[in-house]
Design a protein around this nucleic acid. Sequence first.
DNA 1: ACTATAAACGGACAACTGTCCGCTTGGCAA
DNA 2: TTGCCAAGCGGACAGTTGTCCGTTTATAGT
Lengths: 196, 196
Amino acid sequence: MGGEVVERRDAAESRRRILAAARRLFGECGVDAVSMHEVGRAAGVGQGTLYRRFGHKGDLCAALLGEEIEVLMREVQAREESELALERLGWLLDRISVFNEENGALLGGMRNAGDEERRVEMYRNPFYAWLRATVRGMLDRAVEEDEISGLDAEHIADVLLAALNIDLYFYQRRELGMDRERIVASLNQLLDGLRA
Amino acid sequence: MGGEVVERRDAAESRRRILAAARRLFGECGVDAVSMHEVGRAAGVGQGTLYRRFGHKGDLCAALLGEEIEVLMREVQAREESELALERLGWLLDRISVFNEENGALLGGMRNAGDEERRVEMYRNPFYAWLRATVRGMLDRAVEEDEISGLDAEHIADVLLAALNIDLYFYQRRELGMDRERIVASLNQLLDGLRA
DNA sequence: ACTATAAACGGACAACTGTCCGCTTGGCAA
DNA sequence: TTGCCAAGCGGACAGTTGTCCGTTTATAGT
């Protein structure tokens, strides 16, 4: 196992240049206004090289989010076992809304998809899988500790995350004028309803 | 008011031909495998004509769904006032899951989007707006009648609909192996938690 | 019937995505 | 050091989306 072959030096350099160029261009012009060709040109690599590393713009966004995601994961792990599971879950939902506020552009970039395969790919993404497993774990724990009862934790984990998906979130924030606190509070009320 | 100018005869004929061609091609090859140019060619109209009527493939899918949507709307209206609001809502969620099963391909086509504008457009779509208003109305009614209490109906309406969005639905059905009944039952449990 | 004109038409075109493939090169083994 | 070759590279290219604009046509008014 662990057949991980190390990346060749030129390949690592290309990856670094691509990510740097993408970070700069996305920041300056917005994700949607930058084409993959522009990223390649700015990074000084050809299309083949670009697409070899990142199959599409969403991959690039996901890679750029990597660092932020690790911060989030560490914060979650640091809280482990420190309080009631349901309170930790409430905190996580709040934290995800903050993540949305801070990383909306890249999260949005990950959701651009031209066919069903791409759209479903979102849910297979390791970040989503981790969130899903984490939320589900908290729900399971809350059931074990008799904080709540009678729910399908696997399904409800998806429901809670769907409620915070970036497209809906932006729509609610910008077009419906809801604020972050209201959205989080409403989800917490929903969880409260499950209290045993 | 009602400044509705009638569609010119040639325009109406084009629309008819486009919808017929799209219905056939989407049915035969799947929405994603058919390009807008192919639809135009099959319909015997140019690109200009095609895009004049339907700004993008999602519009075309929405138009093809029109009839099914009207059936759904009439069914909902027929149930009006016939029972407790919360039961009507439970029924509607079940009905939406059936709609997903039957119209997944076209619903999916409406979600293909290459930028944020397009992604948010989904929520402005009249069908979504109607669903949203309907679910919210049922929740408001349930609060009035003291069936439930303490919830943000406007927000929860979006949550319930997000829980049934076609991408998540397909993922749960096909990759997680959940069945329709389980998904609907879990949402109903969630609603039960809100009972006063 | 005739004319004016707004609406509709169609296809060329520009931009973007993603793939393919022949050339180049880093790194290992002899 | 040399030679090998898998990995990497780049840019041409095919397919798609969506726009633009010169031409045609339905229809209302005379």
